[in-house]
Amino acid sequence: MTKIFAHRGSAGTHPENTMIAFYEAERAGADGIELDVQMTKDGALVVIHDETIDRTTDGTGWVKDFTYRDLQTLNAVYKFAEQYQVCRIPLLEEVLEWISGTSLLLNIELKNGLIPYEKLEEKVIGIVKHYRLEPRIIFSSFNHNSMARCRQLAPNIETALLYMEPLYQPWQYARLLGASGLHPYYRTVSESFVREAHLHHVHVRPFTINSEESMKTMFQYQVDAIFTDYPQKAKQIKKKA
Rank of each mutant, 00 (worst) to 15 (best):
V77H: 11
M164H: 03
G178F: 01
E97W: 06
E118Q: 02
Y163V: 06
G12S: 07
T57K: 03
S211L: 12
S190H: 06
A6M: 04
C150K: 08
V47F: 02
A21R: 09
S141K: 13
E34T: 10
A160F: 09
H130E: 14
T102D: 09
Y84T: 02
L167Y: 02
F207W: 14
A174W: 00
V223W: 02
E94G: 07
R136M: 01
Y84F: 15
K239M: 05
K235R: 15
Y173R: 06
L177N: 09
K239E: 11
E158Y: 04
V223T: 15
E191R: 15
A76D: 02
M164N: 14
H200N: 15
G113C: 09
E191T: 03
L182T: 02
Y84H: 13
T2K: 14
D70W: 10
Q236A: 14
M147N: 14
C87R: 15
G178C: 10
R149W: 07
T56W: 03
A241R: 07
E94R: 00
E158M: 14
T18C: 04
G9P: 06
F227Q: 02
T52K: 10
Q169T: 15
E24I: 13
I4M: 10
I108H: 07
I209H: 05
T2L: 06
F193Y: 14
I53W: 08
Q83K: 15
T40F: 01
G12H: 04
N75Y: 05
S180P: 00
Q85C: 00
Y23D: 02
M1S: 13
N210L: 13
E93C: 04
E134P: 04
K119D: 13
I226Q: 10
A179H: 12
Y163F: 15
N210A: 10
F22A: 12
